[in-house]
Design a protein around this nucleic acid. Sequence first.
RNA 1: GGCCAAGUAGCUCAGUCGGUAGAGCAGAUGACUGAAAAUCAUCGUGUCGGCGGUUCAAUUCCGUCCUUGGCCA
Length: 309
Amino acid sequence: MISKNKVIFVVGPTASGKSELALHLAKKFNGSIINIDSVQFYEGLNIGSAAPSEEEKKQAPHYLFSYVKAPVEMTAGQYIRDFYELIESGKVNSPIFVVGGTGFYIQALEKGMYDLPEVSEEIKNEILADYEIFGSEKMYAELKNFDAETELHPNDHYRVGRALEVKRAFNLKISEFKNTGADNKNKLPYPSMKIGLTYQTDDKEKFMNRVHQRTLKMLDQGIIEETKSFLTQGYESWAPLSSVGYLETKSYLQEQISREELPAAITQATMKLVKKQKTWFKRDEAILWSDVFTPQYEVIERTVQDFID
RNA sequence: GGCCAAGUAGCUCAGUCGGUAGAGCAGAUGACUGAAAAUCAUCGUGUCGGCGGUUCAAUUCCGUCCUUGGCCA
Protein backbone atom coordinates (compact mmCIF):
# COMPACT_ATOMS: atom_id res chain seq x y z
CA MET A 1 0.00 0.00 0.00
CA ILE A 2 2.70 2.43 0.99
CA SER A 3 5.00 1.57 -1.89
CA LYS A 4 2.51 2.60 -4.55
CA ASN A 5 2.94 6.25 -3.59
CA LYS A 6 5.57 8.12 -5.54
CA VAL A 7 6.52 11.67 -4.72
CA ILE A 8 7.90 14.30 -7.07
CA PHE A 9 8.99 17.52 -5.40
CA VAL A 10 8.65 20.62 -7.56
CA VAL A 11 10.88 23.25 -5.97
CA GLY A 12 12.62 26.56 -6.66
CA PRO A 13 12.40 30.22 -5.76
CA THR A 14 9.12 32.10 -5.74
CA ALA A 15 7.81 33.31 -9.11
CA SER A 16 9.62 30.57 -11.00
CA GLY A 17 6.54 28.87 -12.41
CA LYS A 18 6.37 25.86 -10.07
CA SER A 19 2.59 25.83 -9.76
CA GLU A 20 2.12 25.94 -13.49
CA LEU A 21 4.60 23.13 -14.06
CA ALA A 22 3.07 21.02 -11.32
CA LEU A 23 -0.42 21.46 -12.71
CA HIS A 24 0.79 20.48 -16.14
CA LEU A 25 2.43 17.34 -14.78
CA ALA A 26 -0.48 16.41 -12.52
CA LYS A 27 -2.83 16.53 -15.50
CA LYS A 28 -0.42 14.66 -17.71
CA PHE A 29 0.18 11.84 -15.23
CA ASN A 30 -3.22 11.85 -13.58
CA GLY A 31 -1.62 12.70 -10.25
CA SER A 32 -2.26 15.03 -7.32
CA ILE A 33 -0.75 18.23 -6.05
CA ILE A 34 0.14 18.77 -2.39
CA ASN A 35 1.22 22.18 -1.20
CA ILE A 36 4.49 22.73 0.65
CA ASP A 37 4.53 26.52 0.55
CA SER A 38 4.52 27.98 4.04
CA VAL A 39 2.15 30.83 3.20
CA GLN A 40 -0.26 29.04 0.88
CA PHE A 41 -1.30 26.86 3.82
CA TYR A 42 -3.33 29.73 5.20
CA GLU A 43 -6.89 30.58 4.38
CA GLY A 44 -7.24 34.09 3.00
CA LEU A 45 -3.61 34.64 2.03
CA ASN A 46 -4.12 33.90 -1.63
CA ILE A 47 -3.15 36.96 -3.61
CA GLY A 48 0.10 37.76 -1.82
CA SER A 49 1.23 34.14 -1.85
CA ALA A 50 0.31 33.67 -5.51
CA ALA A 51 -1.77 30.64 -4.58
CA PRO A 52 -3.45 28.68 -7.38
CA SER A 53 -6.84 30.02 -8.44
CA GLU A 54 -10.09 28.11 -7.96
CA GLU A 55 -10.12 27.41 -11.66
CA GLU A 56 -6.64 25.95 -11.58
CA LYS A 57 -7.50 23.83 -8.59
CA LYS A 58 -10.37 22.26 -10.49
CA GLN A 59 -8.01 20.92 -13.12
CA ALA A 60 -6.32 18.46 -10.76
CA PRO A 61 -6.72 17.44 -7.12
CA HIS A 62 -5.04 20.01 -4.83
CA TYR A 63 -4.40 19.37 -1.12
CA LEU A 64 -3.15 21.31 1.89
CA PHE A 65 -3.91 24.69 0.37
CA SER A 66 -5.84 27.35 2.34
CA TYR A 67 -6.66 25.01 5.19
CA VAL A 68 -5.17 26.75 8.26
CA LYS A 69 -7.16 29.62 9.73
CA ALA A 70 -5.85 32.67 11.58
CA PRO A 71 -4.71 33.01 14.29
CA VAL A 72 -3.36 29.45 14.14
CA GLU A 73 0.28 29.34 13.05
CA MET A 74 1.62 26.39 11.14
CA THR A 75 4.67 24.40 12.19
CA ALA A 76 6.81 21.98 10.23
CA GLY A 77 5.90 19.20 12.67
CA GLN A 78 2.20 19.81 12.20
CA TYR A 79 2.65 19.90 8.46
CA ILE A 80 4.22 16.46 8.41
CA ARG A 81 1.38 15.03 10.52
CA ASP A 82 -1.18 16.60 8.20
CA PHE A 83 0.69 15.25 5.20
CA TYR A 84 0.71 11.64 6.37
CA GLU A 85 -2.84 11.80 7.62
CA LEU A 86 -3.85 12.91 4.17
CA ILE A 87 -1.91 10.14 2.43
CA GLU A 88 -3.27 7.52 4.81
CA SER A 89 -6.80 8.61 4.04
CA GLY A 90 -6.19 6.88 0.72
CA LYS A 91 -7.80 9.55 -1.43
CA VAL A 92 -4.62 10.98 -2.92
CA ASN A 93 -3.69 9.79 -6.41
CA SER A 94 -0.07 8.94 -7.08
CA PRO A 95 2.12 10.37 -8.48
CA ILE A 96 2.07 13.07 -5.85
CA PHE A 97 3.54 16.42 -6.86
CA VAL A 98 4.67 18.23 -3.73
CA VAL A 99 5.00 21.88 -4.74
CA GLY A 100 6.53 24.83 -2.93
CA GLY A 101 9.61 26.88 -2.21
CA THR A 102 9.92 26.44 1.53
CA GLY A 103 13.19 24.58 1.94
CA PHE A 104 12.75 24.02 5.64
CA TYR A 105 9.46 22.16 5.19
CA ILE A 106 10.82 20.17 2.27
CA GLN A 107 13.74 19.10 4.41
CA ALA A 108 11.38 18.28 7.27
CA LEU A 109 9.31 16.04 5.02
CA GLU A 110 12.27 14.33 3.38
CA LYS A 111 14.50 13.79 6.39
CA GLY A 112 11.93 13.91 9.16
CA MET A 113 11.84 15.96 12.32
CA TYR A 114 13.28 15.10 15.72
CA ASP A 115 10.68 13.06 17.48
CA LEU A 116 9.49 15.55 20.08
CA PRO A 117 6.02 16.32 21.38
CA GLU A 118 4.61 19.83 21.27
CA VAL A 119 5.94 22.23 23.85
CA SER A 120 3.18 23.64 26.03
CA GLU A 121 2.00 27.21 25.62
CA GLU A 122 2.96 27.88 29.23
CA ILE A 123 6.61 27.14 28.60
CA LYS A 124 6.65 29.06 25.32
CA ASN A 125 5.16 32.12 26.98
CA GLU A 126 7.42 31.79 29.96
CA ILE A 127 10.47 31.92 27.71
CA LEU A 128 9.15 34.97 25.87
CA ALA A 129 8.56 36.66 29.20
CA ASP A 130 12.00 35.70 30.48
CA TYR A 131 13.53 37.25 27.39
CA GLU A 132 11.85 40.51 28.34
CA ILE A 133 13.00 40.32 31.93
CA PHE A 134 16.52 38.93 31.65
CA GLY A 135 17.62 39.85 28.15
CA SER A 136 19.28 37.76 25.48
CA GLU A 137 22.65 37.45 27.18
CA LYS A 138 21.29 35.65 30.21
CA MET A 139 19.01 33.50 28.10
CA TYR A 140 21.92 32.42 25.95
CA ALA A 141 23.96 31.75 29.10
CA GLU A 142 21.24 29.44 30.35
CA LEU A 143 21.45 27.45 27.13
CA LYS A 144 25.23 27.39 26.99
CA ASN A 145 25.37 26.16 30.60
CA PHE A 146 23.02 23.33 29.82
CA ASP A 147 24.31 22.49 26.35
CA ALA A 148 27.95 23.48 25.88
CA GLU A 149 27.95 21.99 22.38
CA THR A 150 25.38 24.42 21.03
CA GLU A 151 26.41 26.11 17.81
CA LEU A 152 23.66 28.70 17.91
CA HIS A 153 24.54 32.36 17.73
CA PRO A 154 23.63 34.31 20.91
CA ASN A 155 21.68 36.82 18.80
CA ASP A 156 19.55 34.20 17.14
CA HIS A 157 16.71 34.67 19.63
CA TYR A 158 14.35 32.42 17.82
CA ARG A 159 16.59 29.35 17.77
CA VAL A 160 18.00 29.97 21.24
CA GLY A 161 14.44 30.29 22.50
CA ARG A 162 13.45 27.06 20.84
CA ALA A 163 16.46 25.26 22.33
CA LEU A 164 15.43 26.55 25.75
CA GLU A 165 11.90 25.32 25.20
CA VAL A 166 13.25 21.83 24.55
CA LYS A 167 15.46 22.12 27.58
CA ARG A 168 12.78 23.28 29.98
CA ALA A 169 10.05 21.02 28.62
CA PHE A 170 11.98 17.78 28.10
CA ASN A 171 15.44 18.35 29.55
CA LEU A 172 16.96 17.48 26.17
CA LYS A 173 19.77 19.04 24.15
CA ILE A 174 19.07 19.84 20.53
CA SER A 175 22.77 19.63 19.68
CA GLU A 176 22.67 15.94 20.63
CA PHE A 177 19.96 15.17 18.11
CA LYS A 178 22.21 16.29 15.30
CA ASN A 179 24.69 13.50 15.93
CA THR A 180 22.44 10.64 16.90
CA GLY A 181 20.51 10.32 13.66
CA ALA A 182 17.35 10.46 15.70
CA ASP A 183 15.44 11.65 12.68
CA ASN A 184 15.87 8.52 10.56
CA LYS A 185 12.61 6.88 11.50
CA ASN A 186 10.66 9.89 10.27
CA LYS A 187 12.11 9.92 6.80
CA LEU A 188 9.80 10.09 3.83
CA PRO A 189 8.84 6.42 3.29
CA TYR A 190 8.07 6.73 -0.43
CA PRO A 191 10.30 6.83 -3.48
CA SER A 192 10.89 10.45 -4.41
CA MET A 193 12.67 12.76 -6.82
CA LYS A 194 13.07 16.51 -7.06
CA ILE A 195 12.75 18.81 -10.01
CA GLY A 196 13.50 22.50 -9.73
CA LEU A 197 13.04 25.71 -11.65
CA THR A 198 15.57 28.50 -11.34
CA TYR A 199 17.40 31.14 -13.36
CA GLN A 200 21.04 31.75 -14.23
CA THR A 201 22.85 34.47 -12.26
CA ASP A 202 23.22 36.50 -15.46
CA ASP A 203 19.45 36.63 -15.77
CA LYS A 204 18.83 38.29 -12.42
CA GLU A 205 17.60 41.53 -14.01
CA LYS A 206 15.27 39.62 -16.25
CA PHE A 207 13.94 37.67 -13.31
CA MET A 208 13.46 40.83 -11.31
CA ASN A 209 11.31 42.25 -14.09
CA ARG A 210 9.21 39.13 -13.94
CA VAL A 211 8.87 39.52 -10.17
CA HIS A 212 7.90 43.17 -10.54
CA GLN A 213 5.17 42.33 -13.03
CA ARG A 214 3.88 39.83 -10.52
CA THR A 215 3.94 42.47 -7.77
CA LEU A 216 1.86 44.83 -9.91
CA LYS A 217 -0.58 42.02 -10.57
CA MET A 218 -0.93 41.33 -6.85
CA LEU A 219 -1.69 44.98 -6.17
CA ASP A 220 -4.19 44.90 -8.99
CA GLN A 221 -5.83 41.78 -7.62
CA GLY A 222 -6.22 43.34 -4.18
CA ILE A 223 -3.37 42.42 -1.87
CA ILE A 224 -4.07 45.64 0.03
CA GLU A 225 -7.68 44.67 0.76
CA GLU A 226 -6.58 41.14 1.57
CA THR A 227 -4.10 42.45 4.14
CA LYS A 228 -6.50 45.02 5.52
CA SER A 229 -9.13 42.39 6.27
CA PHE A 230 -6.71 40.61 8.59
CA LEU A 231 -5.72 43.83 10.29
CA THR A 232 -9.33 44.80 10.94
CA GLN A 233 -9.87 41.38 12.49
CA GLY A 234 -7.04 42.13 14.90
CA TYR A 235 -4.47 39.72 13.48
CA GLU A 236 -1.76 42.32 13.20
CA SER A 237 0.88 40.21 14.91
CA TRP A 238 -0.09 36.95 13.22
CA ALA A 239 3.24 35.61 11.95
CA PRO A 240 2.19 34.97 8.33
CA LEU A 241 1.40 38.66 7.96
CA SER A 242 5.13 39.27 8.33
CA SER A 243 5.85 37.39 5.15
CA VAL A 244 6.94 38.97 1.90
CA GLY A 245 4.33 41.24 0.37
CA TYR A 246 2.09 41.28 3.41
CA LEU A 247 4.68 42.95 5.63
CA GLU A 248 5.22 45.76 3.12
CA THR A 249 1.49 46.17 2.59
CA LYS A 250 1.04 46.34 6.34
CA SER A 251 3.69 49.10 6.47
CA TYR A 252 1.71 51.00 3.88
CA LEU A 253 -1.58 50.55 5.72
CA GLN A 254 0.08 51.73 8.91
CA GLU A 255 1.44 54.75 7.04
CA GLN A 256 5.09 53.86 7.37
CA ILE A 257 5.60 53.90 3.61
CA SER A 258 3.65 55.59 0.83
CA ARG A 259 1.49 53.96 -1.81
CA GLU A 260 4.09 55.02 -4.39
CA GLU A 261 6.85 53.19 -2.56
CA LEU A 262 4.87 50.01 -2.08
CA PRO A 263 5.42 48.20 -5.40
CA ALA A 264 9.20 48.61 -5.32
CA ALA A 265 9.27 47.57 -1.66
CA ILE A 266 7.41 44.35 -2.40
CA THR A 267 9.60 43.53 -5.38
CA GLN A 268 12.73 44.18 -3.37
CA ALA A 269 11.58 41.97 -0.50
CA THR A 270 10.61 39.26 -2.97
CA MET A 271 14.08 39.32 -4.53
CA LYS A 272 15.59 38.90 -1.11
CA LEU A 273 13.42 35.89 -0.53
CA VAL A 274 14.38 34.51 -3.92
CA LYS A 275 18.04 34.78 -3.02
CA LYS A 276 17.52 32.95 0.27
CA GLN A 277 15.61 30.21 -1.48
CA LYS A 278 18.35 29.83 -4.06
CA THR A 279 20.91 29.59 -1.28
CA TRP A 280 18.87 26.93 0.47
CA PHE A 281 18.43 24.77 -2.64
CA LYS A 282 21.97 25.21 -3.90
CA ARG A 283 23.40 22.58 -1.61
CA ASP A 284 20.83 19.96 -2.58
CA GLU A 285 22.56 18.04 -5.34
CA ALA A 286 19.59 15.76 -5.95
CA ILE A 287 17.52 18.47 -7.60
CA LEU A 288 17.18 18.24 -11.38
CA TRP A 289 17.14 21.86 -12.53
CA SER A 290 15.40 23.48 -15.43
CA ASP A 291 15.56 27.11 -16.53
CA VAL A 292 12.68 29.41 -15.64
CA PHE A 293 12.73 31.13 -19.01
CA THR A 294 13.10 28.01 -21.12
CA PRO A 295 11.55 25.14 -19.15
CA GLN A 296 11.90 21.92 -21.11
CA TYR A 297 8.54 20.38 -20.34
CA GLU A 298 9.13 17.37 -22.62
CA VAL A 299 12.42 16.55 -20.93
CA ILE A 300 10.83 16.89 -17.52
CA GLU A 301 7.91 14.71 -18.56
CA ARG A 302 10.27 11.98 -19.70
CA THR A 303 12.22 12.17 -16.43
CA VAL A 304 9.02 11.86 -14.44
CA GLN A 305 7.83 9.00 -16.64
CA ASP A 306 11.08 7.10 -16.06
CA PHE A 307 10.78 7.64 -12.35
CA ILE A 308 7.22 6.38 -12.18
CA ASP A 309 7.88 3.24 -14.24
C1' G B 1 17.60 90.09 -4.69
C1' G B 2 18.07 89.50 1.18
C1' C B 3 18.12 86.19 5.45
C1' C B 4 18.28 81.14 7.50
C1' A B 5 19.07 75.90 7.14
C1' A B 6 21.20 71.81 4.63
C1' G B 7 24.87 69.38 1.03
C1' U B 8 29.19 63.01 4.25
C1' A B 9 28.43 55.34 1.42
C1' G B 10 23.24 53.44 -3.66
C1' C B 11 19.29 55.76 0.25
C1' U B 12 18.24 58.14 5.29
C1' C B 13 21.40 60.37 8.46
C1' A B 14 25.45 60.39 12.74
C1' G B 15 30.23 62.39 13.63
C1' U B 16 35.09 64.67 13.76
C1' C B 17 36.22 70.83 20.48
C1' G B 18 41.36 70.41 13.33
C1' G B 19 44.99 64.45 13.00
C1' U B 20 41.39 61.93 5.85
C1' A B 21 34.88 59.02 9.03
C1' G B 22 30.37 55.18 10.92
C1' A B 23 25.22 53.50 11.92
C1' G B 24 20.52 51.78 9.93
C1' C B 25 18.49 50.38 5.33
C1' A B 26 19.82 48.56 0.45
C1' G B 27 23.51 45.13 -1.85
C1' A B 28 26.94 40.53 -1.70
C1' U B 29 27.90 35.78 0.66
C1' G B 30 26.42 32.07 3.99
C1' A B 31 23.79 29.30 8.13
C1' C B 32 19.19 26.88 9.01
C1' U B 33 15.22 20.35 12.58
C1' G B 34 7.95 22.53 15.24
C1' A B 35 7.21 31.00 13.52
C1' A B 36 11.20 29.40 8.06
C1' A B 37 8.24 34.33 2.88
C1' A B 38 10.72 33.79 9.78
C1' U B 39 15.43 34.30 12.42
C1' C B 40 20.60 34.96 12.40
C1' A B 41 26.07 35.63 10.93
C1' U B 42 30.14 37.89 7.91
C1' C B 43 31.46 41.92 4.39
C1' G B 44 32.00 49.48 4.79
C1' U B 45 37.65 54.23 0.60
C1' G B 46 33.40 57.38 0.36
C1' U B 47 37.10 63.57 -4.56
C1' C B 48 32.84 64.29 3.67
C1' G B 49 29.33 69.83 -2.91
C1' G B 50 33.49 72.94 -5.97
C1' C B 51 37.55 76.40 -5.60
C1' G B 52 40.67 79.27 -2.59
C1' G B 53 42.70 80.86 2.48
C1' U B 54 44.66 79.93 7.57
C1' U B 55 47.51 75.68 9.57
C1' C B 56 52.77 71.00 10.28
C1' A B 57 47.77 69.01 9.16
C1' A B 58 41.04 71.00 6.83
C1' U B 59 35.61 66.86 5.75
C1' U B 60 35.96 69.97 10.42
C1' C B 61 37.79 76.98 11.01
C1' C B 62 37.40 81.38 7.38
C1' G B 63 36.09 83.35 2.44
C1' U B 64 33.73 82.55 -2.04
C1' C B 65 30.89 80.01 -5.64
C1' C B 66 27.25 76.12 -6.91
C1' U B 67 22.88 73.08 -5.61
C1' U B 68 18.40 72.06 -2.66
C1' G B 69 14.72 73.48 0.90
C1' G B 70 12.33 77.40 3.98
C1' C B 71 11.25 82.48 5.24
C1' C B 72 11.26 87.73 3.60
C1' A B 73 10.98 90.98 -0.53
